[in-house]
Design a protein around this nucleic acid. Structure first.
Lengths: 344, 344
DNA sequence: CTGAAAGCGCTTACAG
DNA sequence: CTGAAAGCGCTTACAG
């Protein structure tokens, strides 16, 4: 005969440390100690308590613990949009790392209009740290977050005037490498498609790119803005390549837009890549390796950036110190077939 | 002269309702009421309190509120992997909807090994509801979540024996439509690539597909397993299409794998799509519309599924009732160019 | 409408 | 090592 679940014990067991204490015939403080690593409690007592806890289905209430200890174990993760695959992958990995370290991620999908609301909620939930993972979140929001005094790490973005750490790759050098590669590939009319004008990633990639062109006696042939969106990039590409005197190469500020640009060049305009136009992106998202695009791009040191983000954040939390350090990781050109390969 | 921040008030303001009460010369309960919608408090008093609160930078402590009210405002969102773009997009939209409704998403990236740990943490954080958003999370995990008595909604997955609601699209009908389309397109050797064997999406899509084939006097030509991963799909595709007697059409259980299959067919094997092989996917992720793939696929009613997920979850939370309803949304064939179009 | 008081479930000095 | 007690910051009956 199958035993029915005991009806006296509701499914959503609100079992407290007091219940366990009574059951194990010990004090409530002892129960607390049994669940606190490093607390002074005898092995015998702990065992007895753990046994009772299992029997009753007890789990410490993390919220109550947070109240008294001042440690919520919560990290706010601010993200703007997940279309660009770079971000979900980073979100996934950073979350996993934080979970492994005993923290839990509170997700904030933020929009430009949200700012005050977001900051307010972050504060209400007593998060111990904040990760801002988006190229496009406004710097006012970053400033507000930094002002809370809660440790902040900006991921793939920086605001130099802020008491917040940031983790980025060397976007300036990345831009330079791309300029070098395109010039050496013999291109004469080299264009640039910007992402979001106010993002540090775009600013640095663009600055490095122009610098690289200048170093080789070139200037940009034409500049358009795609705004880091697929549709924006398509529109800008049609305008740019739809004219008779079109570029023979383009650096697109991220891969996500580069795919859109490639589609327009090939399918709307019937041009060949790289024979008619060379295309280079930035980020090296997994799709860049997909054969249909096989995109030459610059790889951000993703796993190092993830590691640095969690390390810097946890370090700040554990030392109660708010820092303003920037970790910059090297960029690396990943050569595939979407851009003409220089000879030699 | 620029004024320095007051050093007497630390940046991470631990301002409590008591501080506000003292400042506004009212009771602490009054402060609480000023921040509780619908509480009985005079307009004059509320105003005075709100003014003090702003001056001091007070925010109610959500954790303390949760302790006493039993409402944490937290929803656990369980996700397995974010490679397949379908999931980040759903995660983004569901999170936005929950935020708008005043809830906050606690993110759990889960692995097969994690189960007990995940359930334990969910319980510790006193979440009010759980969304399981993954085709591949194990049904034991789903069972464990349902057993907690916390409202659960399975997104894009179901386990019929569970006291949990689920939101899915009509995967059986979707599979049938694909079979019909391929048979009518005149294909003779129609293959199927499965995703994860134990997922309900795969089971239903496969069952519907076979049923559709049978209805038209066909059987599946060959069946391989891609496991819902890009690499798994590539491997299976090489094996399947690398032989002389290869399929002339394939239904791949999701778009994410279909892209991989298309790359292998075109670039590794030099075959044309759809002239040599027709490919159909499932999900209609944004990439399916990218011209390089232009994938014929079945669209899941994403926005309806998102809406239903949040509505069903919030309804269960607000009525304290755990339900076992399944919301099934219609599937729709999206015709693009990766599969031969039937005449007429 | 308002305030004093109890209590949510814990952790952590403080004695013993 | 163990227990009694205070207290984290709130909400919510209970009186007035």
């Amino acid at each position: 005969m199958v035993k029915q679940p005991q009806l006296t014990q509701p499914l959503s067991t609100p079992v407290t440390s007091g219940d366990v204490a009574r059951h194990a015939k010990v004090s409530q403080s002892a129960v607390s100690r049994a669940f606190t690593p490093g607390a002074s409690i005898s092995a015998k007592m702990r065992e007895k308590i753990l046994k009772s806890a299992v029997e009753l289905g007890y789990r410490p209430n993390a919220l109550a613990r947070a109240m008294i200890s001042g440690r919520s174990g919560l990290i706010a993760m601010l993200v703007a949009y997940l279309d660009n695959q770079f971000y979900p992958l980073m979100l996934e990995q950073i979350s996993r790392r934080l979970q492994e370290s005993g923290y839990q991620v509170l997700l904030f999908m933020t929009d430009p209009g949200d700012q005050d609301e977001v900051v307010s909620r972050i504060l209400q939930y007593q998060v111990e740290g904040i990760v801002m993972a988006s190229a496009t979140l406004s710097s006012e929001l970053a400033t507000e977050c930094a002002r809370t005094g809660i440790p902040v790490v900006l991921f793939n973005r920086y605001v130099s005037t802020l008491p917040a750490s940031s983790v980025i790759s060397d976007n300036i050098e990345g831009g330079r490498m791309i300029a070098k590669y395109l010039v050496e590939g013999g291109h004469e009319r080299i264009a640039f498609m910007a992402g979001a004008e106010d993002s540090s990633t775009n600013r640095d990639r663009e600055a490095g790119f122009y610098k690289g062109l200048a170093e080789r006696g070139h200037t940009v042939f034409e500049r358009v803005v795609g705004g880091y969106s697929f549709e924006g990039a398509a529109k800008a590409a049609r305008q740019l390549f739809g004219k008779p005197d079109r570029p023979d190469a383009i650096f697109v500020a991220n891969d996500h837009m580069a795919f859109s640009v490639m589609d327009v060049i090939r399918h709307d305009l019937g041009l060949r890549i790289p024979e008619d136009v060379s295309v280079i992106g930035y980020d090296d998202v997994p799709q860049a390796a997909w054969k249909a695009y096989d995109l030459t791009t610059v790889s951000q040191a993703g796993s190092q950036m993830i590691e640095a983000t969690t390390r810097m954040l946890l370090e700040q939390i554990e030392t109660s110190a708010v820092r303003n350090k920037a970790a910059v990781f090297p960029a690396e050109l990943v050569v595939r077939s979407s851009a003409r390969i220089p000879r030699g």
